[in-house]
């Protein structure tokens, strides 16, 4: 009776092992629906990576003077925006996906030399003009720090 049990796992494993060489290749165990599920699963994995680990992409530039927002620019079209600072006019340039301080009347030009900002949370500070340029990202505008104050 016992060895007639269909669920005798030892017999099952033995049969699977013996049949191993003569049996089909592994990919032949897959049916059409299996391939479909594997494809959908791969897409789901790729989407989860793209959605959850894309945090660093910036989509807005925020220009502030003395800690107050002067203008908010979306990073989807190219343009140049003049902003009045403490010393004169500071020009902010925006291109798709990036922004920079094009010119500033400050003496040392640190914020201009910083060049293009591309990542969310990046900041260029023109201290003499009291101007900051800051990029924010898509996930709630969260940067790597809590706050920034002039």
């Amino acid at each position: 009776m016992k060895d007639r049990l269909p669920d005798d796992l030892r017999a099952l494993f033995n049969a699977a092992w013996r049949g191993g060489e003569a049996a089909r290749a592994w990919h032949q165990e897959l049916k059409a629906g299996d391939w479909l599920v594997l494809l959908l699963g791969s897409i789901a994995v790729a989407c989860s990576c793209a959605l959850l680990w894309r945090g660093g992409v910036a989509d807005r530039a925020i220009v502030q003077r003395d800690g107050k927002t002067v203008v908010e620019l979306s990073l989807d079209s190219a343009r140049k925006v003049p902003v009045d600072g403490a010393l004169g006019v500071t020009v902010i340039e925006v291109q798709p996906g990036r922004a920079r301080v094009l010119s500033d009347p400050g003496p040392r030009q640190y914020c201009v030399q910083q060049g293009w900002l591309t990542r969310a949370g990046a900041v260029a500070i023109c201290a003499p003009s009291h101007i900051t340029l800051q990029l924010n990202g898509g996930n709630g505008g969260k940067a790597g720090y809590d706050s920034l104050n002039y």
Binding site: R4, L5, P6, D8, A11, L12, F13, A15, A16, G19, G20, A23, R24, W26, E29, L30, D34, L38, G41, S42, A44, V45, S48
Partner: peptide
């Protein structure tokens, strides 16, 4: 999700092989 995809596939293949063997094995 990556782990689920990989290990799900491997476990499924082993189960498919076992089920194929069970279908061939004698018994009710």
């Amino acid at each position: 999700a990556t782990a689920a995809l990989v290990f799900g596939t491997v476990n499924g293949l082993v189960a498919a092989r076992l089920l194929a063997a069970a279908a061939l094995s004698p018994g009710p």
